[in-house]
Amino acid sequence: MKTVILIPARYASARYPGKPLAELTQKDGSRKSLIQMSWEAARQIAGVDEVHVVTDDDRIREASEGFGASVIMTSPEAENGTARCAEALANGAISADLVVNFQGDAPLTPPWFVEELIAAMKADPGAQMATPVLQCDPATYDMFVEDRQNGRVGGTTAVFGEDHRALYFSKEIVPYIDPAKVPERDIPVYHHVGVYAYRPEALRSYTFWGVSRLETLEGLEQLRFLVHGVPVRCVVVESRGRMFWELNNPADVARIEKVLKEQ
């Protein structure tokens, strides 16, 4: 099964313009751009045939080629990362049996998150799409709450059934928990890890359907699949003692740099 990782990156982020080129301080004091860190993280994943940065911006292209990445250019009209992946497939820039959308704002994504995602898709030939989810520990749950209290749109939560099919994804904390009843352990909230694995036919359908109302309201591209009745399999992954968080807002820079210094 030919597996290709695509790293969608756009400059014109509403919450954080220029985010892929934002530089973060590493443990040794050096600085690297977010897109370079994401590319290096993707390159550590086993069982992958190709890794490409996918963008419509020449600044991101030049920076990516500068650190050795392969770059696929797409149109500015692509409304999100999934659409950008679908365009790369449709225009013949890649051929693959499995396409993995690896977020360009999540350099803390450990390789086993994606390796387990790929393994789940290989084990279930009928699955059209899958994504990892990670149960919140108290520190991560507190970051979700802090973002909401400060009016920041940050990470995404996922709710799924006994069969691990997604019921919903939200920028709110779901399920709701009374603040007085939040357990000290085993918090029943799952952090959605923004990585997706798709069969090519799922990506082709995604473009054909057009934007759905729910994905517009939540700002979550994966909801288009749920709206059209395509099951999204949630693959539960373990942190193995690693902190996971994405760079959603400028406030997340300090959070991620703290983790980089500690790991």
Rank of each mutant, 00 (worst) to 15 (best):
K2V: 14
T3H: 04
I5W: 01
I5E: 03
L6T: 05
S13K: 03
A14Q: 12
R15I: 00
D28F: 08
R31C: 12
K32F: 01
S33A: 13
L34N: 00
L34V: 02
Q36Y: 00
S38R: 03
S38D: 00
A46M: 05
V48R: 04
V51M: 07
V54Q: 00
V54E: 01
E62Y: 04
S64K: 02
E65Y: 00
F67W: 04
I72M: 03
I72S: 00
S75D: 08
S75I: 04
P76K: 03
A83H: 05
C85E: 01
A86K: 02
E87N: 04
A88H: 07
A90K: 10
G92Q: 05
I94K: 02
S95A: 15
L98V: 10
N101R: 06
F102N: 02
Q103M: 11
G104P: 00
G104N: 02
D105M: 02
A106F: 01
A106K: 01
L108Q: 08
T109R: 07
P110D: 07
E115S: 11
E116A: 06
E116H: 13
L117D: 09
L117Q: 05
I118R: 05
I118V: 14
A119S: 15
A120E: 13
M121D: 04
M121H: 06
M121F: 06
K122G: 13
K122S: 11
D124H: 14
P125G: 11
Q128P: 03
Q128G: 15
P132V: 07
P132Q: 04
P132D: 05
V133I: 13
Q135C: 07
Y141G: 06
D142I: 01
F144A: 05
V145E: 09
R148T: 12
N150M: 09
G151Y: 11
G151M: 07
V153A: 07
A158E: 05
V159I: 14
F160S: 09
F160K: 06
G161F: 03
E162V: 10
D163W: 10
H164Q: 15
Y168L: 11
F169Q: 06
F169N: 05
V174R: 13
Y176P: 11
P179C: 11
V182A: 09
V182E: 10
P183H: 07
P183T: 09
P183R: 06
P183F: 03
R185P: 00
R185S: 15
P188R: 09
Y190R: 06
H192E: 06
G194I: 09
Y196L: 11
Y196I: 01
A197C: 10
R199T: 13
P200S: 07
P200Q: 08
P200V: 06
E201I: 00
A202M: 09
A202S: 14
R204A: 14
S205C: 10
T207H: 03
T207D: 04
R213A: 14
E215K: 03
T216L: 15
T216C: 12
L217C: 08
G219R: 12
G219Q: 11
Q222E: 10
R224Y: 01
V227M: 05
H228S: 10
G229D: 13
V230P: 07
P231V: 15
P231M: 12
V232I: 14
R233K: 15
R233M: 10
S239T: 13
R240F: 13
R240E: 15
G241Y: 14
G241P: 10
F244K: 04
W245C: 08
L247F: 09
L247E: 01
N249T: 13
N249Y: 11
P250H: 06
I256T: 07
K258Q: 15
L260A: 14
K261M: 13
E262R: 15
